[in-house]
């Protein structure tokens, strides 16, 4: 069998146009015993804060990062450009750790 078919060759860069989603193998759930949200991933348990949870719950592969930023800017009465930057940083970090599908826009 040849390999390479699933090889990732380049780092994915998150932009406002990406439509991110949480991969099948990452589970976000509320941990009642510890009273917080957790993100379960291979050999890792992440502890997302309230806003990170709000963002990740909107990562459905349909909404763009810019869409999510607009919703949050409205919810939190904060400047959209600032929120967008913060969200991109957070999602970039998760993408680099292999726990986010970036949903890059198709290149033409």
């Amino acid at each position: 069998m040849t390999i390479g078919q699933y090889a990732k060759r380049e780092r994915t860069m998150i932009t406002g146009d990406c439509r991110p989603s949480i991969p099948r193998f990452v589970k976000m759930r509320h941990d009642a015993g510890r009273g917080r949200w957790i993100l379960l991933a291979p050999e890792r348990v992440f502890n997302p804060d309230e806003i990170a949870v709000a963002v990740l719950q909107k990562c459905d592969g349909e909404r763009s990062v810019a869409d999510i930023a607009a919703i949050l800017a409205d919810d939190y009465k904060a400047p959209a450009d600032l929120i967008l930057k913060d969200i991109i940083d957070m999602l970039q970090d998760l993408s680099d750790k292999g726990v986010l599908n970036a949903g890059e826009p198709t290149k033409s």
Partner: peptide, 25 residues
């Protein structure tokens, strides 16, 4: 907003005393 940080070792025990000692793995 901060990056989503991995749970630190001590963090697991720090949150809720009623379940403080549940193992992670």
């Amino acid at each position: 907003m901060n990056e989503v940080t991995p749970v630190e070792q001590s963090d697991v025990a720090a949150v809720d005393p009623s379940c403080a000692r549940a193992p992670v793995g």
